[in-house]
């Protein structure tokens, strides 16, 4: 009781803090310092039509590399954290409906196509590597829903994941070696704004990100999927 009361009081304090911030908020009328630079120069600098993509891949490319790393960390940690015991129980599931199975077989190629489209056009239209990758992974969701016993080729996924990550770093490095800095996307010609083959490395990097995110999310899904109803690996002698 006292506890709840304390929590309420504290949250009132938090609300007061938020309210103070909220009072200070007003939608700006002009773009601020860096934003106006991005708006004015991105197209010329990078050749990317989508300003957000240019920021994500080039200007703040290091953040993006970092966030890719976080996904990588998550899937790596889960791969050894949620290892299951060798002897798998035989799992029984209710058969999926025929409708679902047929539809999924039909839809999956299109979903993958859509995902690829989204990350290939990341520098031109809304979307990009993350969005495309997420769409790719959703294909796997559909497959798993349709066939719970579907075994994911996690080895292939992780090879794609690792090599696209490695290539991403190499592309970044090429910016350092041939361009003006790490992750400089202007190593390849920036081309004309709005064309598919433009914006230097941005589409290439987005393709790698798309592949990486797609495989990582698929990996996460398959790990969670595979531990359902299974016993997790016990302590392996870790004393503490």
């Amino acid at each position: 009781m006292i506890r709840t009361f304390g929590i309420i009081l504290t949250l009132i304090g938090v609300a007061f803090l938020f309210f103070s911030l909220f009072l200070e908020y007003e939608t700006p009328l002009e773009l601020s310092g860096s934003a106006s630079y991005y708006a004015a120069s991105t197209a010329e600098d990078t050749g990317s039509a989508n300003l957000v993509s240019a920021i994500v891949v080039t200007y703040r490319g290091l953040d993006t590399l970092g966030e890719v790393t976080i996904l990588f960390l998550t899937s790596s940690i889960m791969s050894y954290m949620l290892k299951t015991k060798k002897a798998r129980n035989q799992r029984t599931f209710r058969e999926s409906s025929e409708l679902l199975r047929t539809a999924s077989a039909l839809l999956v190629p299109f979903i993958i196509l859509l995902g690829v489209f989204i990350f290939v056009h990341g520098h031109l239209s809304p979307g990009g590597g993350f969005q495309g990758g997420a769409v790719l992974a959703s294909a796997l969701v559909l497959l798993l829903v349709a066939d719970p016993l579907y075994t994911v080729q996690s080895r292939i996924l992780s090879v794609i994941e690792s090599s696209s990550g490695f290539l991403y770093v190499l592309l970044g490095l090429s910016g350092l070696l041939f361009g003006a800095g790490f992750l400089d996307s202007r190593v390849l010609p920036t081309g004309r704004v709005g064309e598919l083959f433009s914006a230097g490395l941005i589409p290439l990097i987005y393709i790698l990100i798309g592949l990486k995110v797609g495989t990582e999310l698929s990996n996460l899904l398959s790990v969670f999927h595979s531990v359902q109803g299974q016993d997790l690996m016990e302590d392996e002698g870790g004393a503490r």
Partner: peptide
């Protein structure tokens, strides 16, 4: 400077 742009526009 990453990406070859001066801060504050790049990291």
């Amino acid at each position: 400077f990453t990406a070859g742009f001066a801060p504050p526009f790049s990291i």
